[in-house]
Nucleic acid binder design. Structure first.
Length: 226
DNA sequence: GCGACAG
DNA sequence: ATCTTGTCGC
């Protein structure tokens, strides 16, 4: 898919702040999606002592969740890990990978937060706004927010609250297993995001999209074929 | 000032 | 994120 990766990426939090403030106003948290035929998962890993960032994208058919296409790219790591600024570290290489796709997904599930972020501009929002596609933030752990106790059964969820605002949901994707932190990234509502995450999680804790991306990002090095 | 802190 | 084998529990 055609993507225009910004020609300037900040390398410090100080330089990233104005960009965050400018782009967060473009985030849409209402449903603006097409019928979903393809869902993609993205994940970033690191090589050579974190000096190289590697992104993997997996496109699955929906709702049957069968792998349709994959792409992997690498580029030098230029931004440190700073809570609240993860997108500036991972989005550049993710855009490189998305550019290699021949299929344009209708929805992307990200490994990180959406609006469940101190500035309401997590990784999923940043990516969604730059490519103008619906995105969901499905993180494995919490960045900010509080919530009530969550029942152990799959499908149960509680709103994630920060400063009196609902910023996402803590979702039990599998019975008796640690929950997922789901929040809108771009062009999707929280309710719809929860619904799609559950539909992409038929068996394990993580969505099939994320599991495929994780798998590809790690093993593709010595076994490019399988 | 202290503690928390996506990946 | 990443380094890494087996092991306990549903």
């Amino acid at each position: 898919m055609k993507i225009q990766n910004p020609d300037f990426w900040p390398e410090t939090a100080e330089a990233a702040i104005p960009i965050q403030e400018q782009l967060k106003s473009l985030v849409v948290t209402t449903d603006k999606l097409e019928s979903i035929q393809y869902v993609a998962g993205v994940d970033v890993g690191f090589l050579d002592n974190y000096t190289i960032s590697q992104a993997a994208v997996a496109v699955l058919s929906f709702p049957d969740l069968q792998l349709q296409e994959q792409a992997i790219t690498q580029r030098p790591t230029t931004f440190p890990y700073i809570p609240g600024f993860l997108s500036f570290r991972e989005v550049p290489v993710i855009l490189d990978a998305l550019e290699k796709l021949t299929i344009t997904p209708n929805l992307i599930i990200c490994d990180g937060q959406g609006i469940a972020h101190p500035k309401r501009f997590g990784l999923a929002c940043h990516l969604g706004v730059l490519i103008n596609l619906p995105t969901i933030g499905a993180a494995k752990s919490r960045l900010i927010g509080t919530h009530q106790e969550l029942p152990a059964e799959k499908g149960s969820w509680k709103p994630l609250i920060d400063r009196g605002e609902v910023i996402g949901a803590v979702l039990r994707s599998r019975t008796n297993v640690k929950p997922l932190y789901v929040s809108p990234g771009h062009r999707i509502s929280l309710e719809t995001a929860i619904n799609y995450v559950l539909q992409c999680t038929p068996k394990y804790r993580l969505p099939e999209t994320t599991r495929w991306a994780d798998y590809l990002a790690s093993k593709s090095n010595d076994n490019p074929s399988t």
